[in-house]
Amino acid sequence: MGRWMVRAKLKWRILRSQHRLFKDYYQSLIPLLNMPLSEAPLMAMDLEMTGLDPVRDQILSIGLVPIEHGAIPLAGAEQKLVQIRGSVGQSATIHGILDNHLVQAVSIEEAMAWFLSRTRGRILVAHHAPLDCRFLQQDILAIYHQTVMLPTIDTLMVERLRLLREHSVIKEGSLRLGACRERYGLPIYSAHSALTDALACAELLLAQIAAMGGARQLKVVDLLAKSF
Rank of each mutant, 00 (worst) to 15 (best):
M1A: 13
G2Q: 09
R3G: 10
M5A: 14
M5W: 09
V6Y: 02
R7G: 01
A8S: 11
A8L: 13
L10H: 05
W12I: 01
R13I: 05
I14S: 09
I14E: 15
L15I: 10
H19W: 02
R20V: 12
R20G: 01
L21W: 02
F22E: 05
K23W: 03
Q27E: 15
L29N: 09
I30N: 06
P31T: 09
L33C: 04
N34L: 08
N34D: 15
P36G: 03
L37I: 00
L37D: 05
A44W: 11
A44L: 09
D46F: 09
D46V: 10
E48C: 11
E48A: 08
E48M: 12
M49A: 14
L52A: 12
L52P: 01
P54H: 04
D57H: 05
L60P: 04
S61K: 05
V65G: 07
P66A: 11
E68S: 11
G70E: 04
L74C: 00
L74S: 04
E78T: 14
Q79H: 03
Q79T: 14
L81D: 07
V82G: 05
V82T: 04
V82Y: 11
G86S: 08
S91G: 00
A92N: 00
A92T: 12
H95D: 09
I97T: 04
I97Y: 05
D99L: 10
N100H: 14
N100G: 00
H101I: 03
V103A: 14
V103Y: 11
A105P: 09
V106H: 12
V106Y: 07
I108H: 13
M112I: 14
A113L: 12
W114T: 07
W114A: 10
L116C: 08
R118N: 07
T119F: 06
R122Q: 12
I123H: 13
L124I: 07
V125A: 13
A126L: 05
H127V: 09
D132H: 10
C133H: 00
F135E: 08
F135S: 06
F135T: 02
L136Q: 00
L136A: 01
Q137W: 01
I140L: 12
A142F: 01
Q146W: 01
V148P: 02
D154N: 04
T155G: 05
L156Y: 08
V158S: 02
L161K: 14
R162F: 13
E166D: 12
S168I: 00
K171A: 15
G173K: 03
S174C: 00
R176K: 15
L177V: 07
L177S: 08
C180S: 08
R181G: 04
R181M: 12
Y184T: 02
L186D: 11
I188H: 13
I188M: 14
Y189I: 10
A191N: 09
H192P: 08
S193T: 13
A194I: 12
L195Q: 08
D197E: 12
C201G: 07
C201R: 03
A202P: 03
L205W: 01
L206M: 08
L206P: 00
L206Q: 05
M212K: 13
G213F: 11
Q217K: 08
Q217H: 12
Q217P: 00
K219H: 07
K219N: 00
A225P: 01
A225W: 02
K226Y: 14
K226L: 15
S227C: 06
F228K: 02
F228R: 02
F228C: 06
